[in-house]
Design a binder for these strands. Structure first.
Lengths: 157, 157
DNA sequence: GAGAACTGTGGGTGTCAACCCACTATAGGG
DNA sequence: CCCTATAGTGGGTTGACACCCACAGTTCTC
């Protein structure tokens, strides 16, 4: 008898055992969100970290590379590669800090800000796509709850 | 003088530009959830798919491997590896389907059910850890909202 | 100044997920 | 029967991600 009518009537339902776990839902929807955004960024030859770096620079002004590392929690070596690519494409400028010449000060260019604006629009598009089943009020509630969960995670003191 | 007070007063705040994106929060919290659960499973030598397979078998009874593939949306080749490991550890049993001998019917063993119960407990522990800042009522709301978002994703018709 | 400490870089490693292809065994249609 | 399709398997590839070490240049401390 095998999987009989279960496959016919309910074609590929997710196991309730998993659905009842918020951990699972969080992980699954999060992965979808990440994947979709990453895919849109990839079309422009960008990665998620690129957007994060641009956002940090736009929000808080120029950073020494070392500060970007601490703020975003990336490996210094990886950050070097990110800023390298962003600089090559003209989205940021790097300059030796005249006071402490070990440091490299990173600044967003106008092109970088313009790019960031587009990326935010992409992110909102993903959001609209994914949160389609929720009303505006529900989306605000979800955002608020997620924000509090996020604030509680290690890495955002 | 260094990066002065920015590093001192606000040590590594996440850029608001990112925080205002639900996409970002979803992706970040989801990654944390996934990572923590995966880490607990790894201590037992298991991966996330192992748990998903056990859950599917426990919830819906024996599956032909091909049905597991469709239900969970994994590559057939990868599913073979998962059931192989689970069978080696005695959590599932595989048997050729006598009606259609191409098929391999997979069944959970008692050991598998016992393991799944432990894994669910682990998942709830992660949940309690991550959702600590939320009240019980808020957790229910979050779960409900995420459930609706999840149901709307492609892959769960 | 001499040695310790720090910044950025380059290069490399290990893991993981997600595919993809080729192959065997079996089934079903004409 | 032959031919096509399907189920499972084995093996290998790819890309992202996170880490780690070694090194050059610079600064700081004593």
């Amino acid at each position: 008898m095998v999987s009989e009518e279960s496959a016919a009537t309910a074609p590929a339902a997710t196991p309730p055992t998993l659905l009842e776990l918020s951990t699972y839902l969080l992980s699954r929807t999060g992965k979808a969100a990440r994947g979709r955004l990453a895919e849109r960024l990839a079309r422009r030859g960008l990665r998620l970290w690129d957007m994060a770096v641009l956002a940090a620079l736009a929000d808080f002004g120029p950073h020494a590379q070392r500060d970007l590392v601490r703020r975003l929690g990336v490996d210094p070596s990886d950050m070097a590669k990110v800023t390298d690519r962003l600089a090559a494409d003209g989205y940021v400028e790097r300059a030796r800090d005249t006071a402490d010449r070990r440091r490299v000060s990173v600044t967003v260019t106008d092109a970088g800000r313009a790019l960031l604006a587009e990326l935010r629009a992409e992110a909102r598009a993903v959001q609209d796509e994914m949160l389609a089943p929720l009303s505006a009020a529900e989306r605000r509630v979800l955002h608020d709850l997620l924000g509090r969960v996020h604030a509680h995670l290690p890495g955002a003191p």
